[in-house]
């Protein structure tokens, strides 16, 4: 969804940080994105190259760290391993599983000059 606007938000954050922390050029951007964040990483890479053109992140490498999906099974009362929102609990088969991780959409850090 809206990978282009997400990239514009990234450039916006970078420009704010550049002013606050005094750097002029970004060599690498590291993002943390969960599989449930609703972001298509290939579309994001494509948009990133387009959106960063002419900004201080032009030509920067984009590194995407995929965070794991984690869930909490309410009947079992314990964390369980799931992959999708609609996965059943691998222990008891219940669908009463709340997603506790995998929705991250964060800028982790930047390598700058």
């Amino acid at each position: 969804m809206h990978e282009m606007s997400i990239c514009e938000s990234i450039v916006n954050v970078i420009e704010e940080q550049a002013a606050a922390q005094g750097f002029g050029r970004v060599r690498r951007v590291r993002l943390e994105i969960g599989p449930l964040a609703g972001v298509e990483t290939e579309a994001l890479r494509f948009s990133f190259d387009v959106v960063t053109r002419g900004s201080l992140a032009e030509g920067a490498a984009l590194e995407i760290i995929e965070t794991p999906v984690t869930g909490w099974c309410m009947p079992c009362g314990q964390p369980v391993a799931v992959r999708e929102r609609f996965d059943a609990c691998p222990e008891c088969g219940s669908y009463q599983v709340q997603i506790t991780g995998g929705e991250e959409l964060r800028i982790k850090d930047l390598e700058v000059d």
Partner: peptide
């Protein structure tokens, strides 16, 4: 010479929204 450094951001991309 220029020197690369790491800047920790740890910020949600949609934080502004």
């Amino acid at each position: 010479l220029s020197q690369a450094r790491m800047v920790e951001i740890e910020q949600d991309i949609l934080a502004k929204n």
